[in-house]
Design a binder for these strands. Structure first.
Lengths: 220, 220
DNA sequence: GGCTTCCTGACGGCGACCTGAAGGCCCGCC
DNA sequence: GGCGGGCCTTCAGGTCGCCGTCAGGAAGCC
C-alpha cells in the first residue's frame, strides 16, 4: 500500500512515517498543501493522512477538492484535541476516519489496516503458514475452519515470527517486543510463552535454534 | 424529493427554500412546531430541515416524537454556533446531520444531496448476525420476528461492531464513537454498556478480546 | 557421563473484566 | 411545577484468565 502523509510537525511526521513503513507500506511525506497537491496529481495513493493545520492553509480545502473531483482515496485526518468543529467538518467533507493528537502508534496502525482493508474491498490479507490461516489485522488464526485463540503475549510472539519468516529471532529481540521498554526479564518467561504457543499451534510451527533463538519452522 | 423546512427566521428560511427549489426539489416551509406536525401527519416527506429554536418550543421534541413512532425520515438540524449541547442531543435523538448557522448555501446543497443519495435505495439492506436481523438505517433488530430495543448508547456500540465485522475495536475507538464530541470517560461506562448489550442480544454476539478490546463473536 | 540449554507442568498473584446497585439528569406527563 | 421513569454514569465487589516464577526432567553437545 502506498500512503501520502501531509503533516508539518517534523517530530510527529517522522514517527508516523516510520510506523507506516514498519508495517510494510511505502510512504511519501510532505509538509505543505501545494506539495501534497503535486504528489497526488502525479502518483496514485491508496491512503492519505492529512493534518488540518498546515503552513499554507487548512487541509479541509484539499479534501473537499479531491472529493469534488470524484477522488475516493481513503483519508484519515490528524487533528488536535480542541478542534472539534474541524473533525466534524472533516468527516462531512468525506474523510474516512480521524485520529486525535496525541495518538498511540498502535492506534494509528489499527486505523491504517482498517482503512486499507475497507478500500481494498478484500475480505482480508491472509498469511498461510503450514495449515494455519492467519489474519494479522483481525488477530485471528484458523486451522481447518476452527479458530485458535491466543493471549496478548502469545500473539505478540507469534506476530513477530510471522512478520519475519525464516529469520532467527533471539530471546532479546523477542523480549524487546513483548515488554515495551527497559523491563528486564530474568526468568524463562519467554520460553514458557513459546511452549504455550506450541501447545496451541502444534509443534511444527516454532522451531528452536539452540544457543541462538527461535524461528518459524519449515512447515511453512 | 420532497422536503419540509421548519424555520422561523424568514430571511434564512426563504433563502433555504429557494436553494432547495433551485435544486429541483419541492419544499414546504413552516415556522412553527405545531404546523410542522400537521404537515408531517398529512404528507410524506423525504427530508426534514429542522431549526431547534422555534417560537412554540424546541425542535428536539418533534424529532424525538418522530423517532419514537418509528419514523425514519432523514432529518438535518439547523443550529446556531453556540448550541453545542443541542447538536449532541440532536444527533443522539436521531438526526442524520446538522448545519451550523450561518452556513453556505453550497454547504446546504452538499448535505442535501448526500442525504438524498443515502436514502435513494429504497428497501433497507439487512445484515444478519447469528439469529439477528439488523436494519442499520431503520435502527431495528429482529430475532425470530420479535424486535429488540436498544438505547442510544447501546445502539451506537452495536452499530460500530456491525459495521466492522471481525475487526477488534479498542475501548478508545468505541468511546470515541460513543462520545464523539470530546467528552472523556474515565470510568468503565463502556464495559457497562457492553454488559447490557449482551443481556439484550445474548452472550454469543459481542466477544471480549482480553487486553485489546471487543469484537463480534463468531456466532455470525 | 557431565554439562548446558531448553521444555513444560504447576501455582499464586494481579489485574482486566463483569455486573448489580445506587444516584443523577433529563424529559414527558399529570 | 412536581412527579415518575428511562437512561446513563459511577462505584464496588467478585470472578476469572493471564502471566511470571520455579523446579524437575528432557534433550543436545562435548
Amino acid at each position: 500500500m502506498r500512503a501520502l502523509l501531509i503533516e508539518d510537525d517534523t517530530i510527529l511526521g517522522a514517527a508516523v512515517r516510520d510506523q507506516i513503513a514498519a508495517e510494510g507500506h511505502s510512504v511519501d511525506w510532505v509538509t505543505r498543501l501545494d506539495a501534497a497537491r503535486d504528489h497526488i496529481g502525479s502518483a496514485a495513493y491508496d491512503l492519505l493522512l492529512l493534518d488540518l493545520m498546515l503552513p499554507d492553509g487548512r487541509g479541509l480545502g484539499l479534501l473537499r477538492d479531491l472529493r469534488a473531483k470524484g477522488n475516493v482515496t481513503p483519508v484519515i485526518i490528524l487533528t488536535a484535541m480542541d478542534q472539534l468543529s474541524d473533525r466534524i467538518e472533516g468527516l462531512n467533507a468525506g474523510a474516512d476516519d480521524y485520529l486525535v493528537k496525541p495518538f498511540d502508534l498502535s492506534e494509528l496502525s489499527a486505523r491504517l489496516n482498517a482503512v486499507a482493508r475497507r478500500y481494498a474491498g478484500n475480505p482480508n490479507p491472509l498469511v498461510h503458514i503450514g495449515d494455519l490461516e492467519i489474519d494479522l489485522a483481525a488477530r485471528s488464526i484458523l486451522r481447518a475452519g476452527r479458530t485458535i485463540d491466543l493471549t496478548a503475549r502469545e500473539w505478540a510472539l507469534f506476530e513477530a515470527f510471522v512478520q519475519r519468516p525464516g529469520q532467527i529471532l533471539s530471546r532479546a529481540q523477542l523480549e524487546e517486543r513483548l515488554y515495551s521498554f527497559g523491563a528486564e526479564v530474568e526468568s524463562n518467561a519467554t520460553e514458557v510463552h513459546v511452549s504455550r504457543l506450541r501447545k496451541k499451534l502444534g509443534h511444527g510451527i516454532v522451531e528452536t535454534v539452540r544457543g541462538v533463538g527461535y524461528r518459524l519452522g519449515r512447515a511453512a
